[in-house]
Amino acid sequence: MPLARYALYTQNIDIYVAPTWDCGDTWQATMQHVAREGGYWVIDCATALEASDIPTDIPYFDKLFPNKDEWINPGDVVIYKPFGGICAGPMRREKGFLTAEINVEEARASRRKFDASGHYACPDVFSLSVDRQMKPPVAFFD
């Protein structure tokens, strides 16, 4: 969702939190790219879930989860520095709290190298309008 990210970049955020179900190398590469492109800290808090975490009284539990030791989602919680380096993690196939001390000034300094919504945005050529008014999730027209 590059336009949604761009709308965030223009607000000069310093920390981006991504609660998600996504995991794996491809997703981590995406989060690393977002940290680099946006020049902010990225906290990717994925869900670590094992079959043993699922209540056994759900219908078809044994068919759905024949291996009780199976990881349904490995988690891959990670914290990326502004401009894309790993600060902490990833936590793969483990449960717990990933912590790190971060300095928001690093985010602001990284945007001096590459500012996706500043000097690099070419506002003389491109523009993005964001309407913040509440809208219904569905509009029906005849």
Rank of each mutant, 00 (worst) to 15 (best):
K95R: 07
R5F: 11
F140R: 15
M91D: 07
F65R: 02
Y60D: 09
I86H: 01
R36L: 07
V77E: 05
K113T: 10
C45Y: 08
D53R: 02
G75Y: 00
D62N: 08
C23G: 02
V104R: 09
P55V: 07
G96D: 04
N12H: 09
R132M: 11
Q11S: 13
H33E: 12
V130R: 08
N73R: 01
L128F: 11
V104F: 02
I43C: 14
F140D: 14
K81Y: 00
A7L: 04
D14N: 07
T10M: 02
P55F: 05
A46C: 12
C122R: 05
V77F: 02
D62P: 02
T30F: 15
K68N: 07
G39L: 06
T20I: 10
V34F: 04
N103P: 03
E94W: 00
S129N: 13
P136I: 12
R111T: 09
D57T: 13
A7V: 08
V42K: 08
L128Q: 13
L98I: 01
K95Y: 01
W27G: 14
I43F: 12
P137T: 14
C122Y: 06
Q133S: 15
P55W: 04
T47W: 05
A107L: 05
T99N: 04
S127K: 14
I86N: 02
D69P: 00
I102E: 03
D76L: 02
K63N: 11
R36S: 13
F61W: 12
D44A: 14
K63T: 07
V34E: 10
S110G: 04
C45D: 11
F83Y: 02
S127E: 11
L128A: 10
D44N: 12
Y6H: 12
A46E: 06
I72M: 04
Y6V: 06
P2A: 10
V130Y: 09
M1S: 13
Q32G: 08
E105P: 00
V17I: 14
A35W: 06
E50A: 06
D14R: 08
Y9T: 04
P90A: 02
A109K: 06
F140E: 15
F61P: 00
G85T: 07
T56D: 04
P136D: 15
A116S: 10
F97T: 14
I54M: 11
Y16F: 13
R111N: 03
A107C: 06
E106L: 10
G118T: 11
P55C: 05
T56Q: 13
D142F: 15
E106S: 10
R93E: 09
F97A: 11
Y16V: 10
D57F: 12
S52F: 04
A139D: 13
T99G: 09
W21K: 03
I13M: 07
L3M: 05
S110H: 03
E70L: 04
S129I: 10
M134C: 10
S129F: 12
P59G: 01
C122M: 05
E70F: 05
A51W: 01
V130N: 07
K95H: 02
G96A: 03
P19G: 08
D44C: 12
D69I: 00
R108W: 07
